[in-house]
Design a protein around this nucleic acid. Structure first.
Ligand SMILES: [Mn+2]
Ligand SMILES: [Mn+2]
Ligand SMILES: [Zn+2]
Ligand SMILES: [Zn+2]
Lengths: 147, 147
DNA sequence: TTGATATTGATAATGAGTTTCATTCGCTGT
DNA sequence: ACAGCGAATGAAACTCATTATCAATATCAA
């Protein structure tokens, strides 16, 4: 289940005060707008959406805030090798990996417990301590296979 | 086993002629130098090495040639989210994934057949046609755990 | 050897993301 | 409500990786 807006707002407030940072109207707006997005967005895309609500909002503020949301565990960075980072809500309850169509960009979220476990096995085999992982599968979606 | 220099040179020559492109002294030098590298290099790092051999070589030529080598199936692009792309020899005989230390950057190459197979299962489950994949595990190496 | 055309290197341009800095805002204590 | 201080903001300049432009040069089939 997803965090609702109030959940993430509380989470963010708490994170900010822990770090002696402040909740601002811009940060509230960015959080709210980010949580509404249905797709994985880049900071630039989110900035475009935000400008319609608050035309005075700054470019840098969006980047800065997405970084904060990531540190707070509310957003997660995705790198599909496109040249820019995408963000998705990160509720830590629902980790998943991605299957991306290289033609149209459509992407499916999946979670394979077996793969997750095997990853841990690899990491411990080499004496490493697992911090994170990134698994992206690239393919051609059924729709694009027909054209 | 690795391609040797002559192998890759032939592969590259063939690819170039198929595309109506030309083998040049710069391309030969870049290929040779790239194949000698022991670690995954960025285009910039390779450029630094190349300048010592041929100080007149151009920055853009290195980038252009690494792109060609990738298309020819001789190099493979790696993205560890560092901001720049790294390259490794791609012999297709020896695919592997990476386990990277987030502290010191040391990285281990591994191949887990079970994971590879499970990936295929995921892809076919959703009706996709697998094109590529990228699996990076990030952790802390034994050495860095002690400090 | 020649000519068509691909390639090169210098340089400018791009695009994502970050830094700087003067101004404004948020919060805590009064 | 008010003051004061440090945090946050937006504009603009900047960085860094990579790509585009273009005049000069090199390759190779004929
Ligand atoms: Mn996702
Ligand atoms: Mn490797
Ligand atoms: Zn598609
Ligand atoms: Zn390490």
């Amino acid at each position: 289940m997803n965090h609702n807006t109030k959940d993430t707002h509380n989470l963010f407030s708490q994170y900010l005060s822990e770090q002696n940072l402040r909740m601002t109207t811009q940060r509230e707006l960015i959080l709210k707008t980010f949580c509404k997005q249905k797709k994985h967005v880049t900071a630039e895309q989110l900035y475009e959406v935000l400008k319609k609500v608050d035309p005075t909002i700054g470019h840098a503020t969006v980047y800065r805030t997405m970084k904060l949301l990531t540190e707070a565990g509310i957003a997660r960075e995705l790198n599909f090798g496109e040249g820019s980072v995408r963000y998705e809500p990160d509720t830590s309850k629902e980790h998943h990996d991605h299957l991306v169509c290289v033609k149209c960009g459509e992407n499916i979220e999946f979670l394979d417990e077996e793969i997750e476990n095997l990853q841990k096995r690899v990491v411990t085999k080499y004496g490493y301590e697992l911090v994170d992982h990134s698994l992206n599968l690239y393919g051609i979606c059924p729709k694009c296979q027909k054209s």
